[in-house]
Simulated assay, not measured.
Amino acid sequence: MTMIDDLRDLANLEGDLLVIAAYERLGIGTHSDEDNFTDNIWAVGHLAETLAWECGGDSPRYTHPSCKDLFDDVVALGRTICPGAWDYFFSVGQRDSAAAAAGW
């Protein structure tokens, strides 16, 4: 992966989060399931876990200085939409990535 790939992936992630934020404002995907999670919460959780997995462990992803601001913006946006889900699933992704890097 190159720095350009990382920037592209972060921009796509930001776009996905902006769509979820719009859904929240419009009341789309806001009905709770049997676990009391909405479709939007699950989507935010998936994106948080994926991002954490990609940049965790020994991964060089998103470490280029030009990625820092966009990475920070993406994390802030995820936390704005659903702070509990973002933080929980991001930590799960970090934990799993570190475990995989250590050989499980």
Results as ranks from 00 to 15, higher is better:
68 K>I: 04
48 A>V: 00
81 I>K: 00
23 Y>N: 15
38 T>M: 01
104 W>T: 13
104 W>M: 08
1 M>G: 12
14 E>R: 15
84 G>T: 08
28 I>N: 00
99 A>Y: 11
16 D>N: 14
44 V>P: 04
100 A>M: 12
96 D>M: 14
38 T>H: 00
68 K>N: 08
1 M>E: 07
80 T>Y: 10
36 N>W: 10
89 F>E: 06
71 F>C: 01
62 Y>G: 07
31 H>G: 10
78 G>P: 08
3 M>C: 14
52 A>K: 02
71 F>W: 03
94 Q>W: 10
26 L>Y: 14
85 A>K: 00
67 C>N: 05
66 S>R: 12
96 D>I: 06
82 C>V: 00
64 H>F: 04
101 A>P: 05
64 H>V: 01
63 T>N: 09
6 D>N: 15
14 E>I: 11
77 L>T: 00
11 A>W: 10
11 A>K: 10
6 D>I: 03
32 S>V: 12
92 V>F: 09
100 A>T: 09
87 D>R: 02
21 A>H: 13
67 C>K: 02
24 E>D: 15
104 W>K: 13
57 G>S: 10
39 D>P: 06
55 C>T: 07
50 T>I: 07
13 L>S: 07
45 G>C: 05
50 T>R: 13
101 A>E: 11
98 A>K: 15
86 W>V: 09
26 L>G: 10
35 D>V: 04
34 E>F: 15
77 L>C: 03
34 E>Y: 13
60 P>E: 13
58 D>A: 08
95 R>H: 05
7 L>P: 07
45 G>E: 07
35 D>M: 14
35 D>S: 14
62 Y>N: 07
52 A>T: 09
15 G>V: 09
91 S>A: 15
41 I>R: 14
83 P>C: 12
69 D>A: 15
1 M>H: 06
46 H>K: 08
76 A>W: 01
40 N>S: 10
76 A>H: 13
51 L>D: 02
40 N>C: 07
45 G>L: 04
24 E>L: 11
25 R>C: 02
18 L>A: 11
25 R>F: 07
2 T>Q: 10
69 D>I: 07
79 R>T: 12
47 L>I: 07
20 I>C: 02
58 D>L: 12
25 R>T: 02
47 L>G: 05
28 I>E: 09
98 A>C: 11
30 T>C: 12
74 V>D: 01
98 A>S: 15
6 D>R: 03
94 Q>L: 14
27 G>W: 05
36 N>R: 11
103 G>W: 07
47 L>H: 10
45 G>F: 01
87 D>H: 00
17 L>G: 04
16 D>L: 09
47 L>W: 05
